[in-house]
Computed example of a mutant assay.
Amino acid sequence: MDFLQYVNIGHSGLNASAIGLGLMRVTKKSDADAAQLVATAIDHGINFFDNADAYGQGKAEEKFGAALKIAAIPRDRMVIQTKVGIVDKRYDFSKEHIIEAVNGSLERMGVDYIDSLLLHRPDPLMEPDEIAEAFLQLHNQGKVRQFGVSNFNPMQVALVQQALPMKLIANQLQLSIMHTGMIDFGMHTNMTDSHSVDHDGGILEYSRLHDMTIQAWSPYQYGFFEGVFIDNPKFPELNRKLHDIAAKYGSNVNALAAAWILRIPANMQVIVGTMNPERLAEIADIDRIKLTRQEWYDIYFAAGNNLP
């Protein structure tokens, strides 16, 4: 089965599946099971794999590297992304750390280059010129092809970008049907209710203006890792609506929740963290879902949201 939706990440020429497999939890799998998961992704057209050196203190990258050896998937069929910058309980964007971290990631994953490297979380001590030196060295050495950020607000993106010779292509941000702050704020402009509070600096509009792909993490979670909202009895109205619309398209609620994010015209990607091959296959069944504007809003309202 082919997964039909692909995105040109940040209009960089890096073409990847709109659904990416996040590997934070892959450390819980055996090498063989991890290889099966990766192979299932490829079989369903999911070619984008997201990792970080902080996941399991490097063990997620090691597990992914072991899976690649077993699955024997050609490197040119995959788009591999990893993130650096988290060190124990602090952040480090020094030139030395970025370069050392990337070299470690390459070794653990057993690959020669990374397609996309993200700065994991904003470091208040970051020096943009130092970041630029690290990025340029890694790019010139052929170790990293593209660069982006994760959990940055617009001013932080702009601060780093002004020092770089290359364009930042992506920002990985928490977004789901039950985590819609960056959307709510835009519709509640000039209001005084709780939805009008801008926690993100207008990051959705900024990303669109600057051709940065938003990579949505925790697309099935509510709160900050509080739990999954799919088929959760805490959210009966939302789940009724999801099942009704999924049935209309002959699909499933897992695919629908991802399709809801992708319906936002911002060159989105959805990073899913499931370690279940069957559920991953369900999520990949997304090409048949073509949400109407009304259906998108119906789901938004069913999640407890409103309009001014």
Rank of each mutant, 00 (worst) to 15 (best):
S194W: 12
S196V: 14
D198F: 04
P233A: 04
V228F: 02
L238C: 02
M191Q: 14
Q215K: 01
L209N: 14
Q221E: 08
Y206I: 14
V197E: 00
R208E: 14
P219H: 05
G201T: 10
E237I: 13
T189P: 04
Y222D: 01
I203A: 09
I230P: 06
M187W: 10
I203D: 02
K241R: 09
D193Y: 15
H210F: 04
Q221D: 10
T189C: 11
Y220Q: 05
F225M: 15
L209C: 13
N232E: 06
F185W: 07
G223W: 02
N239D: 04
P219F: 01
L204A: 15
N190Q: 09
P236D: 11
D211T: 15
T192V: 13
F225A: 15
S218I: 00
D211V: 12
Q221V: 04
Q221L: 06
A216C: 05
I214A: 01
R208Y: 08
F235H: 06
D184N: 11
R240I: 10
H199A: 03
Q215A: 06
N239L: 04
I214E: 00
K241D: 00
H195W: 15
K234C: 10
E237L: 05
D198S: 10
W217P: 01
Y220D: 01
L209P: 02
F224T: 13
F224C: 08
K234G: 11
P219I: 09
T192K: 15
P233E: 09
M182E: 06
H210Y: 08
I183G: 07
F185L: 06
H210V: 13
A216S: 11
E226D: 15
S218T: 12
F235D: 07
H195M: 12
S196C: 09
Y206V: 13
R240A: 03
G201C: 11
D198Y: 05
P236K: 12
S194D: 02
I230Q: 12
F185Q: 12
G186S: 15
G181K: 06
T192H: 14
M212D: 07
E226F: 08
T192Q: 12
F224S: 09
S207N: 13
S218D: 04
F224R: 09
G181R: 06
F225N: 15
R208V: 15
V197R: 07
D231G: 00
R208S: 13
Y222P: 07
G202S: 13
G227E: 06
M182V: 01
H210W: 05
P219K: 05
H199Y: 08
Y222R: 01
T192M: 12
S196I: 14
I230D: 05
T213S: 14
M187N: 09
H188A: 07
R240T: 12
A216H: 02
K234F: 03
K241F: 00
G186P: 13
M212K: 14
D198A: 09
D200H: 09
S196E: 08
I214H: 01
G181L: 01
M182P: 09
N190H: 10
N239I: 13
